[in-house]
Amino acid sequence: MSILLPDNAQVIVQGITGREGVARTQLMKGYGTNIVGGVTPGRGGQEVEGLPVFDSVAECVAELGEVFASCLFIPAPLVKDATLEAFSAGIKLAVIVPDRVPLHDVLEIKAAAKDYGADFLGPNTLGCVNVNNWVLGMMGGRAESARKFFKPGVVGVTSRSGGITSSMAYYLGQGGVGATTIVHVGGDSVVGLPHPEIVKRFEADEATKAIVMFGEIGGSQEEQVAELIESGQVTKPLIAYIGGKGAKEGTRFSHAGAIIEGGRGTREGKIEALAKAGATIVEDFDKLAEVTKQVLAANGIALADPQ
């Protein structure tokens, strides 16, 4: 059992014939993801990694049966149309890897997702990994190294920074704390499944016993998580690190979507809200595993799920 993707669900790749599409299809398959085909308009009938390529998502679904998730590896300006196409063909989860998707396009995707009862991860996401079962997107690199990086366990990991997502999972693993699912929610200011949505899913996930979150300055995702804890909707122990100590107000560091506007979304405000709600704040990133272990022990949670 896992969050985001049901067992045995079928997955496709949009943009499967491109530079990243080919490479990532291979890596996802290698890790165990149930990829059944892909789409590139104008390339229908070809094959990639032995998988059939279709001209449209609708044709793909007609041929292969119900597809739950699609990973998009296409240029940012084409993302909106491709995602809407996926939703209209019945896709329930779009993993939007590309960076630099126009904000207004994201807002339209968000509105459409609501209409279709679908979700999307990203944009600007590395994706997510269910340890030892599947990966959606581009996390972890080669299967052999991904297996070394990510250890199975009982902690759900959610992060706003791509690189940090893998690092957190890795350093936790090195420190003896394994993970259930590791999610990069995406670096942009508006994303399909922000921290509070992922945290709710971890709450509902039996295998996940505690949650580790990497927050960043800007926006209100972390404050919303604090509200979920306060209102009792999230009861599992939550350990958070909030980055961006060095960021100047109003300066945007790369695509991190990390910006402080008019005093809202500050690091201090987020830490205060989370601490007040009862989350554990880690000040020193290098101590993440150590603190997480202490929190698990204090809550009587074993490091590995006996099942």
Binding site: R160, S161, G163, I164, G243, F253, A256, G257
Partner: peptide, 12 residues
Amino acid sequence: GAGGGGSMMSMD
């Protein structure tokens, strides 16, 4: 740097 979050941490 490489990646927003990791870069900020490295600058720190």
